[in-house]
Design a protein around this nucleic acid. Structure first.
Lengths: 192, 192
DNA sequence: GTCTATATTCCGATAGAC
DNA sequence: GTCTATCGGAATATAGAC
């Protein structure tokens, strides 16, 4: 996209990656520029150079997540729908193993404290995930590979809710929660 | 419990109520003593008198929630299990109408930033809810009033997850989410 | 129990040198 | 692009008068 030498964006990328990690592990309002600068062994002024305001950094984190989600799901396109759902659960399981929660689960509680621009980005992310899963479920049911009651949209909301909250719950009661939940979830979808 | 004139605890009660509201609407790390003091028209020093540290206040909020949950569920004891589950969903729906999210959904993302004592209280709360619902589902299935696959414990985790995250989601995408989710959830449980 | 006043620390953000 | 230095503000918390 932007014309830029490879090393020029190196620091920038590291900052975004660190911010992503911190949002998921501590929450957007609970980390500071220092938390980013210190581990990267730079000064907070350097972070401000790349992202003048904290909201700018938050927006970039969400934007990259949307981009990542779209590229992932696009790679699953040729798989049967039930396997695509499995892939989705694996994304969450991987987050769990790294001690992360998903961005939605992290940013939704703080939603009202976010800048309007960042709120818009979070909404965009939510819609991207919900729309994709709705279509996946709809198609999967048509093909006879997935079974569920009610509309695909509502079922998508339920499944997203489960995956999100299972990460939250497992942070409190231990990581066995996410395994149990996702397995039962997939079993439900496979059962006629 | 404690020996104390009625008016002596009035301010204290108001502080806890305000803190509860703020935890649910903004998150534990995003509100300050000023946010509590200003609407009550007292000074932040008065808040510190009742709760020396913010963690003390947080613990009290969670403790009162545990107490409230136990007294609510105890009042439902004589109802059929399927109606008890409906009662539970109504608690969440009421939260949604007031723009609140549940305490677990609010505190779980920030869990690692909480003091050990507060973490312990949050875990206690999680277990109280999960244990109650597990037993309710187990009993309901025995009575033939509730229908689900898998263990009651895993199903309890799934339902709690759904209710929690539906509040989070509805904050971002709008409040229709919670209605759709809970209705489908109850329909699932009623279907043989 | 509540107040005024303040200590201390930290945060996001900016200015200007290099 | 990164640094040093610092501003302005806000947060938690405490001391001491009333």
């Amino acid at each position: 996209m932007r014309q830029m030498a490879a090393n020029m964006s190196e620091t920038r990328d590291k900052i975004v990656a660190m911010a992503d990690r911190l949002v998921r592990t501590q929450g957007f309002n609970a980390f500071s520029y220092k938390d980013i600068a210190a581990p990267l062994e730079i000064k907070n002024a350097a972070v401000h150079y790349h992202f003048p305001a904290k909201a700018d950094l938050g927006i970039e984190v969400v934007e990259q997540e949307i981009e990542k989600f779209r590229s992932q799901t696009s790679r699953w396109k040729k798989l049967p729908e039930d396997e695509q759902v499995v892939k989705l659960t694996e994304v969450f399981r991987r987050h769990s193993q790294e001690g992360n929660i998903c961005l939605m689960g992290s940013l939704a509680p703080d939603f009202r404290t976010l800048s309007p621009a960042m709120q818009a980005k979070v909404l965009e992310m939510a819609n991207a995930i919900i729309d994709w899963l709705t279509q996946c479920l709809e198609q999967g049911r048509k093909q006879g590979r997935l079974h569920f009651k009610g509309t695909a949209h509502t079922r998508a909301l339920i499944i997203i809710s489960n995956l999100q909250a299972s990460l939250l719950l497992s942070r409190v009661i231990g990581s066995s929660a996410i395994r149990d939940i996702t397995e039962q979830l997939l079993a439900d979808l496979r059962q006629k």
